[in-house]
Computed example of a mutant assay.
Amino acid sequence: MNQARQDEFDALMSEVVQLPALQDATLALRDLERLKFDLVEAGGTVNRANDLIIKSLRRLIETNFFREHKHVLQKIESVLELAIRVKPQPPKDRDLMHIDGKPQLDFFLNRRLFRPPNVINIRSVTVDAGEQDADISALLTDDDVSLEQLEANVDQLLRHRPQVSLATILTEFPPHKGLAEIVGYLTLATQSEAQNKATVREDTQDEITFTTDEGLRTLQLPKIIFVR
């Protein structure tokens, strides 16, 4: 207990001793006056008991450690004794040691010098949407798809309505030649758009379904509308 705590304890004890109710209790006052010394003596007893417990635990740990150490030494000696006995005639049906592959020498002079890594600069550039001005009709041949026949299909539907979408055209005239026929309609739409006979709505998508040798296929294309 530090000095401040002792002074506080003495002040509180003085206040307790001066209480009127304890003035006639001589035995109680005597016990209170000796309380500080009794506490110190009890604390010393507790400290001595703790020292004995610590010594006992330390002795127990040292004893167990000595036993384990002795047991390990006995095991090592038994292994050495067994190795000495079998040394003249080692077992032939098993390998005592086996190293996979051949040993390789690694000298520090054989190592390459340090080369700084190549730094790749990636710039964040906004890519603007371009305009498609290439002629994709070269993808089609007369033997595959006839643009005249596709145009005739569009004209046939426009006879009874002012406009018709590509999805409707493919519903009325299913593409028998797969993706090539759809590309033909796209080529026709590009040519018709220049003549104000077709419009392409980028904000609206049409789902186009067609049949190939591998089964049904689905495309998502901008909505294409042919007009008279």
Rank of each mutant, 00 (worst) to 15 (best):
G44R: 05
S192R: 15
Q6P: 09
E77C: 06
R94T: 11
V16D: 11
A167N: 01
D213N: 11
R159D: 05
D144S: 07
M97T: 13
P20R: 12
L166P: 00
T45R: 15
N196W: 06
D7S: 11
L150S: 00
S56Q: 04
E151S: 12
V79W: 04
R217G: 03
E81H: 09
V127T: 07
A152L: 10
T204E: 15
V40T: 14
L29S: 06
Q132V: 07
E131S: 07
L216S: 10
I208M: 00
D7L: 13
L113R: 08
S56D: 10
L80P: 04
L39F: 15
V125D: 13
E172F: 13
F226Q: 00
E81K: 11
L150W: 00
D106W: 05
Q89Y: 08
E181C: 02
E131D: 13
M13C: 09
D7G: 10
G178H: 03
V127P: 07
N153S: 14
D93L: 03
T126H: 14
V127N: 07
I53S: 14
L22P: 01
M97Q: 09
K102D: 04
L80Y: 04
I169T: 01
L147Y: 01
S124Y: 03
Q6Y: 12
T168S: 04
R217C: 15
F173S: 00
N118K: 11
S56W: 05
A42G: 15
L221A: 02
V119K: 02
D31H: 08
V164G: 00
I61E: 13
L73S: 02
V40H: 13
D24V: 03
G101A: 01
D95S: 04
V145T: 09
N64E: 10
H69C: 12
N2E: 11
S192Q: 12
Q104R: 09
F226T: 01
E68I: 11
E151D: 09
F173Y: 03
E77N: 10
F37M: 12
R30S: 14
D144W: 03
R67T: 03
R58V: 10
I224V: 01
F226S: 00
Q156G: 09
A194K: 06
L52M: 15
I53V: 15
T209S: 13
N118S: 07
Q6T: 12
M13T: 04
Q195Y: 02
T168H: 07
D135Y: 03
S137C: 03
A83M: 04
Q3L: 02
T209I: 15
P117T: 07
I54G: 08
A11Y: 12
D133S: 05
D128A: 05
E81Q: 10
Y185D: 02
K75W: 15
Q18I: 04
R30E: 14
F37H: 11
M13L: 14
Q89D: 09
R5Q: 11
V164N: 01
N2C: 15
S192P: 03
R161P: 03
L52Y: 14
I136C: 08
V227Q: 15
G215N: 00
R34E: 14
N196V: 10
D95I: 02
D155Y: 13
N121T: 05
T190G: 06
L22Q: 04
Q195D: 08
L52S: 13
A194V: 06
A83I: 05
N121S: 05
T26S: 02
